[in-house]
Simulated assay, not measured.
Amino acid sequence: MKDILFLLAISLAGYILVRILLKEPILPWKEKKASAFVPKPKKKNKKNKSSTNPLEEEEAAPFSDLFPNVKTVANHMIHFSDNRFVMMAEVEPVNYFLLDEDEQEAIDTVIETWTAQISYDVRQYLQNRFVDLTEPILEIKKTMEREDTLNEEARTFGQNMIRDLESWQKSTPRYDTKRYILFEMQVDPNDIKLHEEDDMQERIIDKAFQELYRRVTTAKNQLRRADVFVELLSTDGICEVLYYAFNRRKALKNRYSDIEEHEMLSLYVTADTPTKRIIKVRGELERVQKEEREKSEQAAG
C-alpha cells in the first residue's frame, strides 16, 4: 500500500512539473490564460528624412500681422495703439548652483522680497540665439595685425584658431540664452491733467516712461544685492531683441550690429544733400507732425 501511495505522489509531482513547464493550467478544465505578449512597435525608417540645414528657416510673418496693435518703438518703450507701454530690461543672471547654501539662501531672500513688493504686471522673456563668434574672431585678427613682434609659429597658431572657430560656428550651431524682464502698463488719458501748452500724447508718454523707469530702477536696486544685474534696454536694444526674435537663424549671417554700422537703420538719407532740399524736407516733417497733433487734440476733445 505504501508503494502505491509513493508512486502516486511521484506521478502527481511529475504531472504538475510538466504542466508548469508547458505553461498550461494544472487543472485540465481551466481555460488557458491569454498571452501577455505585446508586439514591439516597428522602428521608423529615418533614411527617408531629408537632412535640413539648421541655419535655414521659413520667412517670418510680417511684424504688423503678429502684433497689429504696436504703434512704434521709441523712448525706450514699445508703444501700443491703446496707450499700453512695455519697457524691457536685460538681466545678467548669477550662477546659482556654484554657490554654497548660505549664499543661495541670501539670493532667495532678495528675490522673494522683490517679488512680494510687485503689484503690477511683470513678465519674463527668454530668447535663444545662435552663438555668434564674430566679435572674438575680429578681435583675434586685430591683435595679430597690431602685434608686429609675433613669430611665424604664433601667427600660424592664430590663423588656425580663426579657421577652426569659423568652421565650428558654421558646422555646429549652438545656442545662447538671453534673459529679459518686461514691465507693462496702460495709461488712462482721463487721469492726466493738461495745461494749455501741454500735448496729450506727450504727457501720456512722459507718464508711462516715468512710471516704468521707476519700476526698472526698483528691480535693479533690489536684485543687485543678489548679484543679479538689470540693465534698461534702449530703443535700439529693443529693436535688436525684436530683430533676433523674427530672424533667429538669418541673424547669424545678417548681424544686427552690421546693419547699424552701415546706417541702414537711419530715418534720413545720409548722402550729400543740398541745403534747400533739407529745409524743404524739414518743413514737410513739421507740417505732418502738426497735423497729427491736431488730430489727437480733436480726438481727445
Rank of each mutant, 00 (worst) to 15 (best):
E286C: 01
P62G: 09
F229H: 05
L99H: 03
Q159G: 11
S50R: 10
A116V: 06
E58Q: 11
W168D: 15
I4Y: 10
E197T: 06
A300D: 09
T72S: 14
H262I: 09
I279H: 08
K290A: 12
M77Q: 08
D258Q: 15
Q210F: 12
I140W: 01
F209H: 14
E286H: 08
S296N: 12
E297H: 11
R277I: 08
A300T: 09
K43V: 14
K276I: 04
D198N: 06
Y268M: 06
R155K: 15
N190M: 05
M1H: 07
E139W: 02
H79S: 03
Q186R: 15
A13E: 09
L17V: 06
I204A: 00
M264Y: 15
T270Y: 10
E56A: 12
L165F: 02
T235E: 02
P25S: 03
K193G: 13
Q289T: 09
L212Q: 02
L98C: 13
I238R: 09
K44M: 11
E211S: 04
Y175G: 02
T273K: 10
S50P: 04
Y125Q: 04
D206F: 04
S171N: 15
R203F: 03
I279N: 08
T149P: 00
R214P: 00
K207D: 09
R84N: 11
E105M: 07
P62R: 08
K40N: 12
T275G: 07
F246D: 06
D176I: 09
N45P: 05
R277F: 13
L232G: 10
K280G: 05
Y256F: 14
Y268G: 05
H262L: 15
E231C: 11
L150F: 13
A219G: 01
N151P: 02
L138H: 12
S234D: 03
T177G: 08
F67K: 07
N247F: 11
A60G: 07
F63K: 07
S81T: 00
P173K: 00
F157D: 11
L66F: 03
D191N: 02
L126P: 07
L285T: 03
Y125P: 03
D100V: 06
A271C: 12
N75Q: 05
G301M: 13
Y256V: 08
N254L: 15
F6H: 05
F130C: 12
V281M: 06
M87L: 15
E184Y: 05
R179F: 13
A300Y: 14
V70Y: 03
F37D: 08
E263G: 05
F63A: 15
F209R: 14
D3E: 14
I192P: 01
S11K: 10
N247D: 12
K40T: 10
R146A: 15
V269T: 08
I259M: 15
S35K: 14
Q222N: 13
L182D: 00
I4G: 07
I16P: 01
V94W: 00
E135T: 05
L223N: 02
D3Q: 15
W168I: 09
R179M: 13
E263P: 03
